[in-house]
Simulated assay, not measured.
Amino acid sequence: MESLLEVKNLSVSFDVYGGEVQAIRDISFEVNKGEAVAIVGESGSGKSVTAQSIMRLNPSPPSRFKGGSIKFEGQELLSLSEKEMQKVRGNKIGMIFQDPMTSLNPTLTVGSQIMEGLIKHENMGSDKAKARAIEMLDLVGIPNSSTRLKQYPHQFSGGMRQRVMIAIALACNPSLLIADEPTTALDVTIQAQIMRVMKELQQKMNTSIILITHDLGVVADVCDRIIVMYAGRIVETGTKWEIFQNPQHPYTRGLLRSLPRLDQKKDEALIPILGTPPDLIKPPEGCSFCARCDEAMKVCVNNDPNLYAIKGSDSHRAACWMLHPCANREVPV
């Protein structure tokens, strides 16, 4: 498959009063055309910073790129000026933010907010932009679109506001859609509807998707590949079937054990991951998950593992010393 986005050795830090927060530490991944990729992990693992770094939305200062590369359609985004980057945002790369109530402008109608990008990026007149906005509201499943176009965000439910955000993000037919926790504030039935809308739109428009979430459960039906992040690093990556059926990193297994299952017995409790993530002002020298890992070894304390390829797979890799050829240990499933 042809690569659309290439992130290589990216490191991003925030200079704060207490020191340097190393939010992203040397991560690399790709997103292919028409592919849906999920980035999962706990709060503070670096998921949203990764998404905002791709869009160049992190304020500087306090943020700064320490190294690495972000290439979109072969173009280096980190070398673009702010004016050049504005031509990419909303046009070639769309983004759905976490909370639609705070992301939408309460003083403007939803129609004017959808039309704004079309007028700016597509050079459409107001009549043509309005027709396109109505078409987008129909596409994301909002009934009476011509009437709803004139309404304000507070007149919509949470699920409908999120659909409006999707319509805004997809109005200019972007090649890449970044969805940052798009279902966090919604109940499970609305979550399922939003994820179904995103899947249908991906198939219709062949848009690549990066889905940022802390919940592995919402990605199973939508994404092709999963990237698991912890403490600013990628600890495991593979297809969704490899991650769900054969997780290789202790952190990934912990995330899956903490999810409710349909075959779970009534008296069977969920198993949480004990402890807390490390302080990224002073990250550990070795494996970042070492202090919370039941399978930690001496080598884990002072040595950070590489991403090791899993036997029998071209796409599955995990950063765990138990996967080193010299470990000679079976990884539990």
Rank of each mutant, 00 (worst) to 15 (best):
L5S: 06
V7Q: 05
G18Y: 12
Q22M: 12
E30Q: 14
K47H: 10
R56I: 08
P59N: 07
P59D: 05
F65Q: 05
E84Y: 05
T102W: 08
P106S: 06
G117R: 08
I119W: 01
S126Q: 13
K128R: 13
A131W: 01
N144A: 15
S145V: 03
S146W: 02
S146F: 02
Y152Q: 04
F156Q: 01
V164K: 01
P174V: 10
A179M: 08
Q191L: 03
A192K: 13
M205S: 04
N206T: 08
S208Y: 02
T213L: 03
A220Y: 11
A220K: 13
C223R: 00
V228A: 05
V235N: 08
G238K: 03
T239F: 07
T239N: 06
K240S: 04
F244V: 10
R257F: 07
S258V: 09
P260K: 00
K266A: 13
D267G: 02
A269D: 12
I271Q: 15
P277C: 07
P277F: 04
L280Y: 09
G286C: 11
C290D: 04
C290T: 11
M297Y: 00
P305E: 02
N306T: 13
A309L: 09
I310R: 08
I310A: 07
S313W: 11
P325V: 04
